[in-house]
Design a protein around this nucleic acid. Structure first.
Lengths: 137, 137
DNA sequence: ATATTAATGCAACTTGTTTGCATTATATAA
DNA sequence: TTATATAATGCAAACAAGTTGCATTAATAT
């Protein structure tokens, strides 16, 4: 995985600290959305102890820089994932709480319908599917 | 609007208190998902002062009874809406923060694709679209 | 009317997130 | 290489959403 986000930030003149680079690297290597406290715990487990406040501030920063984005879930915690990976949506297993990415072909027609029916200028969308994964069946 | 939810609860032997009936009536007459604190504030404004704790407990109760359901949004607050209304999804205006219902025809093919591609048993789904509404353009 | 117990209100608590401020450390210039 | 400016950080306190324990109130059945 090429750290394109890191070089992009450095070019813009932002400092590359251990907290920043380890949060970006973690998110780049995670294939599903995670929460602030997950980021904090995972980094601590691998020996990168950064303050939870810093995690929140870094998330805010990365959101502003469009390096990560929010993913809406059913619970009341905010989850995040890096932008720029192939467009996809999420599958939630209501049994084991796992989250899986899914790429869909048939969303194009859906978006056209939304645009035509609503007269909104749609800039983003989020599709989430809930059910039981093969392992839990 | 026929208070079918209320009679259903009474048949099941639950008590019909002012808090319960006014929360149900409010949700039945709201065409978009709202939060616990919205419920609390709106009811207070119309002269129904119920404790915020009661609002949360009532929401839990109504979720259990499948009279309302959670709607996942981008913020970190939980929104709720009554079940049983025609199947629909949500449009969010990122300019004025309004939420609007939308009924979609083309989601059937989407669900088939999800099922075929994932081997999950899908029980629910949630589609959300973000953009600028006609009024804000 | 009375009894049963579901529903409620209050206060305290937990958890997630934000803010103020003093300190640390990265990147740049001398 | 050292000094400088200030971005980034940590800590503590504050804040907000949601939860819990417990004593009180009130809706329904008798």
């Amino acid at each position: 995985m090429i750290p394109q986000h890191i070089s992009k930030l450095q070019e813009k003149g932002f400092r590359m600290t251990q907290a920043r680079s380890s949060i970006i690297n973690l998110l780049e290597n995670t294939d599903h959305p995670i929460t602030a406290s997950s980021i904090h715990k995972i980094l601590k487990r691998i020996g990168v102890s950064i303050n939870i406040t810093t995690v929140y501030r870094e998330i805010e920063f990365l959101l502003n820089e469009r390096i990560i984005e929010k993913v809406p879930l059913m619970d009341n915690e905010l989850h995040y994932e890096v932008t720029g990976r192939p467009h996809h949506h999420h599958l939630f297993c209501t049994s084991c709480s796992s989250i899986k990415d899914i790429v869909l072909q048939s969303e194009k027609g859906l978006l056209e319908e939304v645009h035509d029916a609503s007269s909104y200028d749609i800039t983003r969308h989020s599709l989430a599917f809930f059910g039981t994964c093969p392992d839990c069946k």
